[in-house]
């Protein structure tokens, strides 16, 4: 690990003014620093900031502090009652120990698990822009099939952000200039293009302070389905956060976000449009899957993700509309 300067911030304002890399739970950043994939010169400890509360909003939604641990968020009674998909996604991620430390803000910003990104002897455009991408012709079983570029095919590995994408969460930040920004999650992550090292629209040094959840959709059924190589403590190959509501025999609401398929939680409005107003049937579900995967492109080892995503989507829709 490279040497760094360590500072504990005592307020969000002081944290952004300090001009360094934030450390919250540390479960991703320390791992990457130990391998010298990340080499910050200054660490700002934000773990003691007063941002660990979950609060009711007047509109029936919730405001989640950026430092709320994943365990506490998953176990919160309001989250279980109103946003079951979020609890389920959190509980499907990592382990009990990691969830106790991992924070809401850190989980959103966790970096890819691409093996070549972790291996400093390999070529990786995300780690060293312009170096090339060893995943394209290498082992790419865990890599993305949607939203990729010639420069990078890595996935966002998270579960929680997939549920937040289906719930239309809003990410609230404090910029180094002192401004508060509200960023809908749909606009938060960037696709790799030719700058895979830039993963979100955050400015350097911008602090996530909260995540807001809009009021729950009344009557929607929730599901988080995660397919992985072992039953627990493994990242998703494909995952799906789904909220579906059926009224008078027709699909009235559908919010579907996928993990494991793309460089960001993947939600395609055309897929949802193909379902809304229709009577549930396998034909309708299969047509939605065709739309989802229309542009999908495998790199060899990950080709299985396309039929897998299709089956996950159809099975989930069947379960949610029965």
């Amino acid at each position: 690990m490279r040497a760094f300067d360590f500072t504990r911030a005592d307020s969000p304002q002081a944290a952004v003014a300090a001009g360094g890399r934030f450390i919250a739970g540390g479960t991703n950043l320390i791992d990457l620093m130990r391998l010298e994939v990340e080499t910050p010169e200054r660490l700002i400890d934000i773990s003691r900031l007063d941002l660990a509360r979950i609060e009711d909003r007047a509109d029936g939604g919730l405001t989640i502090g950026a430092l709320v641990p994943n365990s506490d968020l998953a176990a919160d009674r309001r989250v279980i009652e109103r946003y079951e998909v979020l609890s389920r996604a959190l509980l499907a991620g990592a382990s009990g120990q990691l969830r106790n430390k991992a924070t809401t803000g850190g989980n959103l910003l966790q970096r890819t698990r691409c093996y070549y990104f972790y291996d400093t002897a390999a070529s990786c455009n995300k780690r060293s822009p312009g170096a090339g991408c060893d995943a394209r012709g290498g082992f790419n079983r865990i890599h993305a099939v949607l939203g990729t570029s010639d420069d990078c095919i890595a996935t966002h590995p998270g579960d929680m952000p997939v549920a937040m994408q289906a719930l239309d969460a809003v990410i609230v930040t404090l910029t180094p200039g002192g401004a508060c920004r509200r960023l809908p999650i749909a606009d938060f992550y960037r696709l790799p293009g030719n700058t895979p090292q830039i993963e979100t629209v955050l400015e350097p040094g911008e602090l996530i302070t909260h995540v807001e959840l809009p009021p729950p959709v009344a009557g929607a059924r929730h599901l988080y389905r995660k397919v992985r190589d072992r039953a627990s403590y493994a990242f998703a190959l494909v995952s799906l956060a789904a909220l579906v509501k059926v009224t008078d025999g027709r699909i009235a609401h559908a919010a579907l976000a996928f993990g494991g398929l793309a460089p960001r939680p993947w939600r395609d409005p055309a897929v949802e449009a193909a379902l809304i107003g229709r009577e549930p049937s396998v034909e309708v579900f299969a047509a939605a899957a065709d739309i989802l995967l229309g542009e999908a492109r495998g790199s060899g080892h990950n080709d299985f993700k396309m039929p897998l995503a299709r089956r996950v989507l159809i099975a989930a829709l069947r379960d949610l509309t029965q």
């Binding site: 540390g26 320390i30 400890d45 009990g96 990691l98 106790n100 430390k101």
Partner: peptide, 13 residues
Amino acid sequence: GRRINACLTLAVM
């Protein structure tokens, strides 16, 4: 009182 992985955190924190 909470279980954590001691390898993924800094003593200074």
